[in-house]
Every structure is written in structure tokens, then in C-alpha cells.
Write a protein that binds this DNA or RNA. Structure first.
Lengths: 342, 342
DNA sequence: ATTAGCACTCGAATGACGCGAGTGCTAACA
DNA sequence: TGTTAGCACTCGCGTCATTCGAGTGCTAAT
């Protein structure tokens, strides 16, 4: 267990290190806190904190730097989410309330804003309603061999895709397909849709609309697009600011990882608490040893829950990040409820 | 005027510098060419080339490095576009012929491939038919207050956008708008469409469908999206490989410039020759002093002309870049003719 | 338990030094 | 007149020694 003084020292050390980026020595702590003791006493405490693994030295005669364990303690017990400045607050409200036409726009703007305000990299994932249902399906013949498929769900997603058929379109064939879909898929939960689409539907089409197997093939991809999670990543370039000592190859890997849906999924998909922080090795990926991933979820009633994430250096300002994220999760809940309501 | 030997020396110097990245001295040139002379003679020639401004020294006793003027001469007279290897050729064909559903996909894939194959940054702009016409316009009521607008042009572009109305949709109002559009815009060249959309159309709507002014407002943005150029940029991260000595702030500016449509337009919009190279200061933008921009156009008959661009260091391999670009322009012409044909 | 004092450590900055690649110039040569 | 061997000179770069100072741990006194 830590004494009050040890906690103050740890807290001060982390804040000082976060703002200067330099290892912190006993004298600095002395002048920057109102602890009533000498530097020697603080040194003794530092030795103790180091033994417990909260801090470490970069070399034998250097000041101390927080360890993962130290950050963990800080985040679990000492973080004070920082209030977001009025003007920034205003920007967030303005941008997210500026009525966006589509879900993706809102998510995209959120990611951009979040990375701008934090100067880190932001990842935003739209609300996922486990229970959302397919509410609409249409096929629209655009011309002789282009068809547009439109899919709607009750989570507000509207997905569309144009595809080309190798032979001229037969309206009655299309209608058969639409009928089959309307009858077997529309109104069902997306999970069920996905299952049926792979199993029952091809059989039905084979039986009642065998001319339209090619339409079916194209449709499969439309549906998989629409059920797939859409990750919005912004501020990848900010990685430059906190990867100065990282070699170029790693930086490139990291960059392309952030463009890969599968990797992003592994990174933040499982999050379920309101707030969560993974520090360095806790992320469990060799590329991320010097990063922290701060995640927050936001709820949009029965439209599901979305995820916000900020990727920054382990030495990031958690106070500020928590503050910004908190504003975002409230604002997004509000914005999206409006979006669904209208 | 340069003698044959001086040309050989300049050519060798540029090739050597491109492949090593190091200043080139007289002895190196001696061993790497079959010039029958001593290093002293070559030194004399180097002095001459330097006087003419084709090469320069990095410091008083260093080897020589090509100057912009030298590169200019090289590109105008000495470049030998390098044949693209069989296997790469195959990849290009496979990817670009793999039937894409939409124009944007083809452009996007092209940019990705082009940046991968060159290791530089690629910019691709789809064919722009000055004369293309609006061939189709539809409004589709998706539900009580969501409408999808679909626009087609004879250049193959199919643009769609979902927008929201603040009040429940009245089908007959929509029909009025569609009628007005069909009557006054469909079949006309896009240039005319743009003009009418700003001038005549609002008056007509005011007169015959005054309830639908809000629909009109939303539609304006759909049209402007569809006529706007779509720049596809890929491989921005490759900038890291040739900006080692650039400061971070500039790199960031450069990066965000490449995400800005307006800036990209200034950069490559005016290109009209088959091939064009701008070297360093020739680009006329302070951020680009150490870069070269190699551009090529490709023609798709009466569907217009598109642009391919590669942004790399001034010391890039022009031979290779020209080779790759040449394959792309031919392949894209072919791929897009097919696309429009089907 | 605290603290003054002190020897010790080590990174970072500084400067001296030599190496070597490359140059320009001169004088001799074909 | 063009070419070349020879040579003194330049300058970036890497190495090494030195210094400086911030910071530490330990000891002994309070």
C-alpha cells in the first residue's frame, strides 16, 4: 500500500513527465509540489516506488520515469478528467450538430475532430445494434446492365452499391429476386439475414429464379459491406509526433495496420466498459509497446453502442484525453439520437 | 553545347547518384563508364558541366550532384523508359482488368498499385469528358423522410446521395421536381446542367413546386459532388522514405496538402501533354523544392482524358517511373474503354 | 523517520584529431 | 591543344578524450 506522500509523489512525477517528456529527479518534485520534506526524503520514497515497479530509471544515475505499472495506478486512481475549454466545446457541438446527411459523415467528422483536439490518432466506430433488423431491400435497374441495390436497416444505415451484369437485365428476373428477399430476409435481424444469405437463399434462387444466380453473387458483397463495421481513422499523420525514435519500417507497419479493418477489429472491437485504457504491452501487440490506447463507448439507446478510441504515446495526457472523450461520448449520443429520431 | 563525352558523363553521374544517393566523384565515373580517359580529364569535364549549371558540389571538396538544370537535361534528352518486369506487368493487368463495379474502384486501385510499384506517392484523376451529358436523374423515397438521389452521366459516372427532409415526403412533390429535372437537365451537357441548376431551376421550382425548395437545396450538393473531380491519392506514407531531412512540420503540411482537393488541382489539373515532369522549384511551391512530379495523361476516346501523377524525390528513378506510367496509361485506356463498353 | 553531505555514475555536449574521398592546379607530354 | 600524372589542399565524418551537471545512493548525525 502507498502512503499519501508516495501517492502525491507518483502523481507529480507522472504529470511532470507528461508535460516535459524528461526523466524527473527528486529536486524537481520538491519544487513542484508542496511536500514538506527534503530532496533526500523524496529520494528515499522514489527508491520505494521503484521497488514496487511504479517507476524506473532510464540509466543508473538518471531521474525517474513512470513504468506501465505506474501509469496503470495513475489511471485507476489519480486521473482527473480535464474539463474541455469552452471554445473547443463549442466547436464539437457545432460540427456534430451541423446536420449531416449520413451516418458515415457524422462518424468521419467525429474522428477528424477527435484527432485534431487530442493531437493523437483517433478511431471511431459507429453504433452497432446487435439486434438491428433489415427493414428495406430494393433493386433498381439503372440501364441495360447496371443495377443498384439498396439496403436499409432500422439502425439507420442505408447502404447502396451499383453492380454490373454481364447480360442485359430482365426486370422480371430482378423482381423474383426482390420477392425472395422481401419474403425471407426483410424484417429479420441482421444476424439471421447473414446466416440465411449463405444457406437458404442460394437454394431458393436456384429453384425459383435460376437465371439470377449472378445477381445473387453480386448481392452477397453488398450485404457483407452493410453488416461490416466501418472504422473511421483520423490523424494517422500525428503518429509522427510521438514516434521520433521508432524506425521507419515499424512506423509504416503501424500506419498500414491502422488502415486494415481486421487489425482495427482486434484492437478495439471487444471493448465494452464506458472507459478503458490499455498501456504499452497491455495492448498485446509488439508494434504498440510505446503507445496507449484510450477507449470509450457511447450508447444510443436501442440503436446500440459505438466505440471511440484515441491512440497516443504511453506518456500522453490522460487527463485531457479522458476529458475530450467524455464530451464526445455525450455529444455523440445526443447527435445520433437526433439523427435516428428525424 | 555538350560534347558526346560530356553527355556520357552527365548521364552516368545522374544514374549513379540516383542509385547510390551519394555525391559522385571523378574516379567513380571513370570506373563505371567506358570512357577512355583519366580521372583528371573527367574532372576537367566536371568543372565545365558545373559552370553550365548542370551539376553542383555539396561542399568545396565533395563529389558532384545533379542540379535541377541537370535533371532537366536528363529528362529532356537522356531518359530511357525502363521496361516493366513481366510479373509486375501481370499484376497491373490482373488488378485493372479484375472487373470493378464502379469507376471509383478502378481509380482507387490504380493509385494504390502505382504507389506500390514506384514506392512513391501516386495521384490519379479519372477521365474528364468536357462534353459528357447528364443521362439520368431519379429521386427515390426510401422512407418517410429519407430520399435518395441518383445521377447518371454518359461518362459512366453513377453518383448517389441520401438526404433527409425535415418534413414527411410528399411523393407528388418529388415527382414535380423529377419532371422539371428530366425536362430541363437530362440529356444536356454537364456544363449546361451546372449553369441551369444555379439559374433557371430554382425559378422553375419556385413556380411549379414551391413546396420542394428544400429538396432542391439538397440536390445542389449532389450535383456538385458528381461534377467535382475525384482525386485518388495513395502512398502518402511513402513520403517518409524521401523526406528524412525535412522537418516534421513541413512534412505534415505536405501530407495535408495531398488530402486537399484544391491544392491537388493546382498541382496537376492543368497538365495536358502525354508526359510531363516538374522538378523541384519548377513545381513552384515551397514545399516541393526537393520533389519531382511526373505526370502522364491517358485518353479514353470521347470519354475524355485522365491524369496519372507520381510524386517522388528529385533524385528519383525517372527511367523506371516513365516505364511504369507508360504501362498504366495504356492499361487504363484499355480498362476504361471496356468499362464504358459493357 | 529525516536530512545534510558527499562520492559516484552516466548521458550529453564539446573539441581535437586523423582519415579519406574528392578537388583544383601545375607542369609535362603527345 | 587536349590529356594526364602528381600533389597540395579542403572538408565532412567518425573516433576518442574531456568536461559538465543533473541525479543518484549511502552514511552518519539529528
Amino acid at each position: 500500500m502507498l502512503t499519501q506522500r508516495q501517492i502525491i509523489i507518483l502523481d507529480a512525477l507522472i504529470r511532470l513527465y507528461t508535460s516535459t517528456g524528461l526523466p524527473i529527479g527528486s529536486k524537481t518534485i520538491l519544487t513542484e509540489t508542496d511536500i514538506d520534506a527534503s530532496s533526500a526524503t523524496i529520494r528515499n520514497e522514489l527508491v520505494y516506488l521503484e521497488k514496487l515497479g511504479f517507476i524506473q530509471k532510464t540509466h543508473s544515475s538518471s531521474g525517474r520515469v513512470p513504468s506501465i505499472r505506474g501509469y496503470r495506478f495513475y489511471i485507476d486512481h489519480l486521473v482527473k478528467p480535464q474539463a474541455v475549454a469552452k471554445d473547443k466545446m463549442q466547436v464539437i457541438e457545432d460540427v456534430l450538430n451541423g446536420h449531416a446527411e449520413q451516418m458515415d459523415d457524422i462518424m468521419h467528422q467525429s474522428a477528424r475532430l477527435l484527432s485534431d483536439l487530442t493531437s493523437y490518432t483517433a478511431i471511431v466506430l459507429g453504433p452497432r445494434a446487435e439486434s438491428s433488423r433489415l427493414t428495406g431491400f430494393r433493386l433498381l435497374a439503372l440501364n441495360d446492365n447496371h443495377v443498384m441495390a439498396i439496403i436499409q436497416t432500422d439502425s439507420g444505415a442505408i447502404e447502396n452499391k451499383v453492380f454490373r451484369l454481364s447480360r442485359p437485365i430482365d426486370e422480371s428476373d430482378l423482381n423474383k429476386v426482390v420477392n425472395i428477399f422481401n419474403h425471407h430476409l426483410v424484417g429479420r435481424p441482421l444476424t439471421e439475414v447473414a446466416r440465411k444469405l449463405a444457406a437458404d437463399i442460394p437454394l431458393l434462387i436456384q429453384k425459383y429464379a435460376s437465371n439470377s444466380m449472378d445477381v445473387y453473387m453480386s448481392l452477397e458483397s453488398v450485404f457483407s459491406d452493410s453488416t461490416e463495421d466501418r472504422f473511421h481513422v483520423s490523424g494517422k499523420i500525428n503518429l509522427l509526433d510521438f514516434t521520433e525514435d521508432m524506425d521507419k519500417q515499424k512506423l509504416k507497419s503501424l500506419y498500414s495496420l491502422l488502415e486494415n479493418k481486421g487489425d482495427l477489429k482486434l484492437l478495439i472491437d471487444h471493448i465494452s466498459q464506458d472507459f478503458d485504457v490499455k498501456i504499452g504491452e497491455e495492448i498485446n501487440h509488439e508494434l504498440f509497446t510505446s503507445f496507449s490506447l484510450v477507449t470509450a463507448t457511447y450508447e444510443v439507446r436501442d440503436h446500440g453502442r459505438g466505440i471511440l478510441a484515441v491512440l497516443g504515446p504511453t506518456s500522453m495526457s490522460y487527463d485531457e484525453t479522458f476529458g475530450v472523450l467524455d464530451v464526445f461520448r455525450k455529444q455523440l449520443t445526443h447527435t445520433l439520437l437526433n439523427y435516428y429520431l428525424e
